[in-house]
Simulated assay, not measured.
Amino acid sequence: MSKCKILYVASEINPFLQTTEVAEFVRQLPQAMQERGMEIRILVPRFGLINERKNRLHEVVRLSGINISVGDEEKPLIIKVASIPNAKLQVYFIDNEDYFHRKSVFFDKQKNFHEDNDERAIFFCKGVLETVKKLGWAPDIVHCNDWMTSLIPLYINTTYKNDPIFKNAKTVFTVYDNSFEHKFGSDLIGKVMMMDIEENMLDNLKSADFEGFIRLGMEYADAVIKSKEDTGEVLNKLMLDISKEKKFDTIENDENFLDSYYNLYNDLVG
């Protein structure tokens, strides 16, 4: 198991950006697993709040240049990379001028939810998978964090299921209480569609809201984790519903949480 390969996908990571608990979690866990002998890759969006000069981001030309389809449009994918100070970890950043250059994450300065956050999530999830293919690096575990990554388990189980990079990958989906009230447009399903996906596979997403994204991620992941025991009403209801269909775990962020994740990865790869 010492060579287990883990791909971490998240909306943010310290020290580059921290707006929620996701950032610190994704900072601690990959380093701990690397210190236990696992091989790690980390991918996050290059949100405009990330200072490229200060954090020494630079473009990886050999990975950039792909066009990612979102609905009827194709957007160019730019990949950047930076190292985490005082750690032997690199972070790859998914970038695109239209989606990630604004100086905000999911809400603007007036606290309005960006109307195209669905497209940004779709572009990010597809961009992650295509980047890992270009790296030629086959993960054993793909650990997805928060709603923005929730399409990845679906895509790995459908469009990418026979791809040699992903065909043996197991997916983990950690759910956080970062809900939003926005409802996306009726064209969401069409934009999410890819090869080998039937429309009925997206039934959980038809609500076109936070709950829909979380339900879809839970449905297709091999393991579902709640980030903490005490969560809001929406997330508690979702977890109650999903527990009727599949097993999920709560891994408390205590002194034993690193051991708990290490054991989970071992069990999944088995």
Results as ranks from 00 to 15, higher is better:
Cys4Val: 13
Leu7Pro: 02
Tyr8Gln: 06
Pro15Asn: 08
Thr20His: 11
Thr20Leu: 02
Phe25Ser: 12
Arg27Thr: 05
Pro30Lys: 12
Met33Cys: 04
Met33Thr: 01
Gln34Ala: 11
Glu35Leu: 11
Arg36Val: 01
Met38Val: 00
Leu43Ile: 09
Arg46Glu: 15
Phe47Pro: 04
Gly48Cys: 03
Ile50Arg: 01
Asn51Ile: 00
Glu52Gly: 11
Arg53Lys: 15
Arg53Gln: 15
Gly71Val: 05
Pro76Phe: 04
Leu77Pro: 03
Lys80Trp: 13
Lys80Thr: 06
Val81His: 05
Ser83Lys: 15
Ser83Asp: 14
Asn86Val: 10
Lys88Ala: 08
Gln90Pro: 07
Ile94Gly: 02
Ile94Trp: 06
Asp95Trp: 09
Glu97Asn: 13
Glu97Met: 12
His101Cys: 14
Arg102Glu: 09
Arg102Lys: 15
Lys103Cys: 03
Val105Gln: 05
Gln110Phe: 13
Gln110Asn: 15
Asn112Asp: 10
Asn117Phe: 12
Asp118Trp: 02
Arg120Glu: 06
Phe123Lys: 00
Thr131Tyr: 10
Gly136Leu: 12
Ala138Gln: 09
Asp140Gln: 11
His143Ile: 04
Cys144Lys: 01
Asn145Trp: 05
Asp146Val: 08
Asp146Arg: 00
Trp147Gln: 08
Met148His: 15
Met148Cys: 12
Met148Asp: 13
Ser150Lys: 10
Leu151Pro: 01
Leu151Gly: 01
Tyr160Gly: 03
Asp163Ile: 00
Ile165Ala: 04
Asn168Val: 07
Ala169Asn: 06
Lys170Ile: 11
Thr171Gln: 02
Phe173Met: 08
Thr174Arg: 07
Tyr176Glu: 08
Tyr176Ala: 09
Asn178Gly: 09
Lys183Asn: 10
Leu188Asn: 07
Ile189Thr: 13
Val192Tyr: 05
Met193Trp: 05
Met195Gln: 15
Glu198Gly: 07
Glu199Gly: 00
Asn200Met: 09
Met201Glu: 11
Asp203Glu: 15
Asp203Ser: 15
Asn204Leu: 13
Ile214Glu: 01
Ile214Leu: 10
Arg215Phe: 11
Arg215Gly: 02
Arg215Glu: 06
Met218Thr: 13
Tyr220Ser: 04
Ala223Phe: 07
Ile225Ser: 02
Ser227Arg: 08
Lys228Ser: 08
Thr231His: 06
Gly232Phe: 04
Glu233Pro: 10
Ser243Cys: 03
Glu245Asp: 06
Glu245Ile: 14
Glu245Pro: 07
Lys246Cys: 01
Lys246Val: 01
Phe248Pro: 03
Asp249Lys: 14
Asp249Glu: 14
Asn253Thr: 12
Asp254His: 04
Asp254Lys: 05
Phe257Ala: 03
Tyr261Gly: 02
Tyr262Gln: 10
Asn266Trp: 03
Asp267Pro: 02
Asp267Met: 13
Leu268Trp: 02
Val269Ser: 00
